[in-house]
Design a protein around this nucleic acid. Structure first.
Lengths: 333, 333
DNA sequence: AGAGATCATGTAATCGTTTCCATACACTCC
DNA sequence: GGAGTGTATGGAAACGATTACATGATCTCT
């Protein structure tokens, strides 16, 4: 593979000059610039980013660690992160933690060794020693979607509190009161936050939440289905089932269908997380949409600000209620 | 950041020895090994992969260029590639070409500069000069899902021919004959192949294919919807609409629903590509499933064989028909 | 006991860039 | 015309690891 030396020889100049041309430094005469560029083309020279990074101590690369690329929410996030990063001249390396702390650690370690310029993490469960370490040692890290308590790390996330209030009020106006919630894992900040918001909203609307009406799943399809089954088997089953994320909503949907119940007539369904195909279901599912693209973009901007040493602040964007038909026909205004 | 030199100083040995311990070379005494490892822990030393790569000329990184991470088919592919690569000690950098040749080129260039050890490409449209160049210059490239004619590159893909035959026969047995096909772009090998297989299958079953019953979309939702509209406006509309990929099937579904038609009673629907939520639709969609995980895994294995200089062969795996209810109730056996 | 083999360790070159500093040449100005 | 000021270029030292080769110590065998 041709190197900068070969280009220099071919153009009859020194490597320093070639390097200057490549990084279009101003101090190069028109003539030599042309000679060098001709040599570059002739030899099909391609700069070696590894060598460059070693010297400049910057890789123009960001790391992104997410729960699971197969979850549409994360896919959208990843896509947005990549687009924004590319626009800023960065490449993104995505790591799939698969919601397992040890695999998350694997990626943190690998990405740090690869000398990424910054790291975006959607943290799984509690902080691991490695993550704490790397935060403490000052690596530029930004948390995305989720946060970890007790760590001084800027984060970019959505707040669903208001939207959950809106949802409960919407349901109440449609004349239903018995709402059950499939909550997320207590270990995740998003799980905790949604559960708290649900209770608050119910109280604010003057609605009861019996203990059996809230059960924690693991954000995966199977748990959504199992919990829905238990809800429906209750002596007094709920009129509405609200799932804490899109995968558990899917599980709930399956269970409801399997029992031959109709949505929304027999039981209504709503979900946290909006995904493209909710719109295509029959009936379309009422959901709380997180601004996923915006989250991804903002996260990159915050991270790059950190990398450049600017002071940064956490970002919280509101989620919003998207009313469709799965909780009943919308009241006319 | 502590380097190998600091570790050496701390342990009272030379950098060579530290390096040997790190790469667990056998020629190190038990005692020094312990000393070095202690120093590594004490200093929280983390090897610099950039420096290592420069010296060893290997980055332990693979590049993967796909059409769009938001398409569930590619998401599954990406996930499988990553899993298999990680198992082999490699990291994967994913590039979203967004089905645009120039963006594909951007990633090819960037990934080559980053010195990836191998490149997996799902090529968009025709070969660009850059891709041809890089293939000709012997970079280890493997095509995934799609191929490019005229280039000597091993590929890993699924063949849907047999499954499309099965589908047509299935539909015929259910008593329908007028099948329309939303085909993919002529520029993509997958588009061409599916169209050819559809025609063959129809002929083999003795069914007619009027010219108006085949129209090419772009593998995106909107085109699926528009083409479906035209099909349904035909004087003699089809009894079955077969979409060439999952996104166009979604578009078709929307158009059918928007007209208040019932599936499968008024018109049946089938899709190439199976995605998780087809199962959750009402009715569940009959589809042709590609072995996406297997494709991803095999692609990595073929690529790594190439990287290691072994002779490799292209892989073709069969797609298979998954019968659900969107074409009518299955005949009892 | 001395030659030769074996083993642990160290010295220094190297990978392909960037960049600091020196240099040489051409101006301008008094 | 010599001092001063730019400007284009080159030489060579980094960056942080790996590794060929050298070295000195210890062991084995006759």
């Amino acid at each position: 593979m041709a190197g900068i030396k070969d280009v220099a020889a071919h153009a009859g100049v020194s490597v320093a000059t070639v390097s200057r041309v490549l990084n279009d430094s101003p101090r190069v005469s028109e003539k030599t610039r042309d000679k060098v560029q001709a040599a570059v083309r002739a030899l099909r020279y391609r700069p070696n980013a590894v060598a460059r990074s070693l010297r400049t101590e910057a890789t123009q690369t960001l790391g992104l660690i997410i729960g699971d690329i197969l979850n549409p929410f994360f896919a959208v996030l990843a896509r947005a992160v990549e687009d924004e990063a590319r626009a800023a001249g960065y490449t993104v390396v995505i790591g799939n933690a698969d919601e397992r702390p040890e695999q998350q650690d694997h990626y943190v370690r690998t990405l740090l060794e690869q000398q990424v310029d910054g790291l975006l993490i959607c943290p799984t469960a509690e902080a691991t020693p490695l993550v704490e370490d790397c935060v403490r040692s000052g690596s530029p890290v930004v948390f995305l979607d989720r946060t970890l308590p007790g760590l001084e790390v800027p984060s970019v996330r959505a707040d669903g509190t208001a939207a959950i209030h809106d949802l409960v009020r919407h349901i109440q106006r449609l004349g239903r009161r018995r709402i059950a919630f499939i909550s997320g894992p207590e270990l995740l900040s998003t799980g905790r936050e949604r559960t708290r918001a649900f209770h608050e909203a119910m109280r604010a609307c003057g609605l009861e939440v019996p203990g059996e009406y809230v059960e924690a799943g693991d954000f995966q399809e199977a748990s959504g289905r199992a919990i829905t089954a238990r809800f429906l088997d209750l002596p007094e089953p709920p009129e509405v089932i609200f799932a804490g994320d899109n995968l558990m909503a899917l599980g709930a949907l399956d269970e409801i269908r399997a029992r031959g119940l109709r949505i929304p007539d027999d039981v209504a369904l709503a979900s946290f997380d909006d995904v493209a195909w909710f719109l295509h279901l029959d009936p379309p599912i009422t959901a709380i949409a997180q601004p996923a693209e915006e989250l991804g973009r903002r996260a990159v901007r915050v991270l790059l600000d950190r990398v450049e040493g600017h002071p940064v602040e956490s970002v919280v964007l509101p989620a919003r209620l998207v009313i469709r038909r799965s909780c009943g026909e919308t009241e006319s205004k």
